[in-house]
Computed example of a mutant assay.
Amino acid sequence: MKDEKTTHFGYQDVPVSEKAGRVRQVFDSVANKYDLMNDLMSFGIHRLWKRQTIEMSGVRQGQRVLDLAAGTGDLSARFSGLVGNEGEVVFSDINAAMLSQGRDRMIDEGRVANVRYVQADAQYLPFPDDHFDCVTIGFGLRNVTDKQLALNAIFRVVKPGGRLLVLEFSKPVLQPLQKVYDLYSFTLLPKIGKLVTQDEESYRYLAESIRMHPDQETLKGMLEHAGFERCDYFNLTGGVVAIHRGYKV
């Protein structure tokens, strides 16, 4: 019997069959402090990154949107208001704990009529072909076991004329910023995680997963390989984060 293929979990090589379970454990651990940690980790700037994603999405009233790796629903909440009662937002996450946190938040905010919740793996989407006007995945693609498989699946469910937006940590384009970013990610970030969530290891993994994620040009090429056209990307905060966008023609 051949040895099982491996993939990266942060800086570790693990069997492909184990990665999803390990990622699930990370988010099970941090789900109830996820929003607080996002504010602390990014000094609140994540809200500006998400606002830019919304503005670039071009989502309009009556459209159907899939928000993958929706977390606690920052993007879904904004899309719910944009599509109105004639539209639909599918709030999706592979992790049950994150999905539950997000659903509770959306219900508390009164966003019920046009939002539905689906626990799904981005690699194997349970939706029809040519179904969504827009698909977003915010800070989730780097955790997917096979990113190309997920991008292929997303392309299948996007309508012709629709688009994908990937909001994700990326590679800083300024060398001095890279050094500061590394110091913060591998020294301060795990300590904040330990203080707030009593889980230093999960935030060490998150820092490592960012470093293992494809750079801007590589990810653009992956979108094109999936079939998306007119692909481009926009660096935010000096390339610490990038928004990639592609269209299905």
Rank of each mutant, 00 (worst) to 15 (best):
L149R: 08
R163D: 08
D129T: 10
T237F: 15
V180S: 11
T187N: 13
I137H: 01
G238H: 06
L165I: 12
D129H: 03
N235R: 06
K194P: 00
K220Y: 09
K147H: 05
D199I: 05
G246N: 06
H225A: 10
P172W: 00
L189N: 09
F155M: 11
G239Y: 02
V173R: 13
S209R: 04
V180E: 11
K179C: 00
A207C: 07
K194F: 08
A242S: 15
S202W: 07
D182G: 03
S209P: 03
M222T: 02
E229K: 14
A242R: 09
K179A: 04
L236E: 06
H225I: 00
G238N: 08
R204H: 10
R156S: 13
H131T: 05
K220C: 12
D146C: 13
T237K: 08
P176T: 04
K191H: 11
Q175R: 13
E168D: 12
F186Y: 11
G138D: 01
N235K: 06
A150G: 06
L236K: 05
D129W: 00
V157M: 04
G140L: 10
V241M: 01
K171H: 13
V157C: 07
V240N: 09
F228C: 03
F132Y: 03
L188R: 01
I154V: 09
L223T: 12
K147W: 02
G162H: 02
D146Q: 14
D232I: 00
S170V: 10
V173I: 14
F234L: 15
I243E: 06
F132S: 02
R230Y: 12
N235Y: 04
T187A: 11
V135G: 11
P190Y: 03
G227I: 07
L141Y: 11
T187Q: 09
E217H: 13
L167C: 12
P160C: 01
L141I: 15
E229L: 14
T145F: 05
D146S: 15
R156T: 14
L177P: 00
E201R: 13
Y205M: 05
G246E: 08
D232K: 07
Y247W: 15
L151Y: 11
A150I: 10
K171L: 10
Q175T: 14
Q216P: 00
E208A: 15
Y203F: 08
H213K: 02
T218R: 13
F169E: 00
D146H: 14
C231I: 12
F234H: 15
E217G: 08
E229M: 14
Q198M: 13
Q148C: 06
P128Y: 02
Q175S: 14
V241G: 00
L151E: 11
K147S: 06
G161R: 04
I192R: 00
C231T: 15
P172H: 03
Y184K: 09
D129K: 03
F169G: 00
Y247D: 15
L177H: 01
K179V: 05
T197Y: 04
L149Q: 10
Q198S: 15
K147A: 09
S209C: 06
Q148H: 05
Y205I: 02
Y233T: 00
N235E: 09
T197G: 14
A226C: 12
L165S: 07
E217M: 12
F186C: 03
L223V: 10
H225V: 02
E217T: 13
D133F: 01
